[in-house]
C-alpha cells in the first residue's frame, strides 16, 4: 500500500430543499492510501452522471466541506466554471485531475494550505473548486493557482479566479469578486 500524506474524506451532497443544508451532506468514506483512493473512485458514479444539485467534496480529515469550518473560514477557492457542454467532454477529466493534484501533494510546500476540493453539478453550468485555508496568503494562493491551471491543461487565455469565502458568503446571489486571477 502507498500511503498518502493525509487521510482524506469523501463527501456527497444531494440537494433536498425540505431539509436543512447540513442534513443533505453525507460522509461517503475515508482513505489514506493510493490503492484505497482508486477503490473508492471506481465504486462511485462519475461526477458527470450525478443529478443536478449534487456535489462531491474531498477534504482533509478534520475539515468539513463548508465555509464555517475553522480551517475554511479565512480561506477561499480557486474556481473553475464550466460551460454546459463541458459536462460531457471534460468534467470528469478535470475533476479527476483535481483529485490527483490534492492526493499527490502537487502544490509542494503549499500543499498544507489546501483544505479540499468540490465539484458542483448544476443545470446552468458545473463548477470545480480547490479550497485553501488562508485567502490572505498571496504567495501560497498564487502558487497553487498557477500549478492547478497548468495541471488542468487550461490555455493561457482561460482565466480562473480566486474568491475569499467571506466575500462569497456576503454575496450569495451573485459571484463574489476575484481576489486573485491566473
Amino acid at each position: 500500500q502507498h500511503p498518502l500524506q493525509y487521510r482524506w474524506v469523501l463527501w456527497f451532497f444531494k440537494n433536498d430543499r425540505s431539509r436543512p443544508w447540513q442534513d443533505n451532506l453525507q460522509l461517503v468514506t475515508t482513505f489514506n492510501t493510493v490503492e484505497e483512493f482508486w477503490s473508492t473512485y471506481s465504486h462511485i458514479k462519475l461526477a458527470s452522471k450525478l443529478s443536478s444539485g449534487c456535489d462531491y467534496a474531498l477534504f482533509k480529515e478534520g475539515i468539513r466541506p463548508m465555509w464555517e469550518d475553522n480551517r475554511n473560514k479565512r480561506g477561499g477557492r480557486w474556481l473553475l466554471s464550466l460551460a454546459k457542454q463541458q459536462r460531457h467532454i471534460e468534467l470528469d477529466r478535470l475533476w479527476l485531475e483535481t483529485l490527483l493534484c490534492l492526493l499527490g501533494e502537487s502544490f509542494e510546500r503549499y500543499s498544507k494550505e489546501v483544505c479540499g476540493a468540490v465539484v458542483n453539478i448544476r443545470t446552468k453550468g458545473d463548477k470545480i473548486a480547490v479550497w485553501t485555508s488562508e485567502a490572505e496568503n498571496q504567495a501560497g494562493v498564487m502558487h497553487i493557482g498557477h500549478v492547478y491551471k497548468e495541471r488542468l491543461g487550461l490555455s493561457s487565455k482561460t482565466i480562473i479566479g480566486y474568491q475569499a469565502h467571506a466575500d462569497t458568503a456576503a454575496k450569495s446571489n451573485s459571484l463574489a469578486k476575484n481576489k486573485f486571477v491566473v
Binding site: E35, E36, W38
Partner: peptide, 20 residues
C-alpha cells in the same frame, strides 16, 4: 518524508486489482 506522487504514478494504480 513527504508523500508526494506525480499524476502518472497515481494513474498507474487506477486499474490494479484492489487489495484492501
Amino acid at each position: 518524508g513527504k508523500k508526494q506522487y506525480d499524476r502518472e504514478f497515481l494513474l498507474d494504480f487506477q486499474f490494479m486489482p484492489a487489495c484492501i
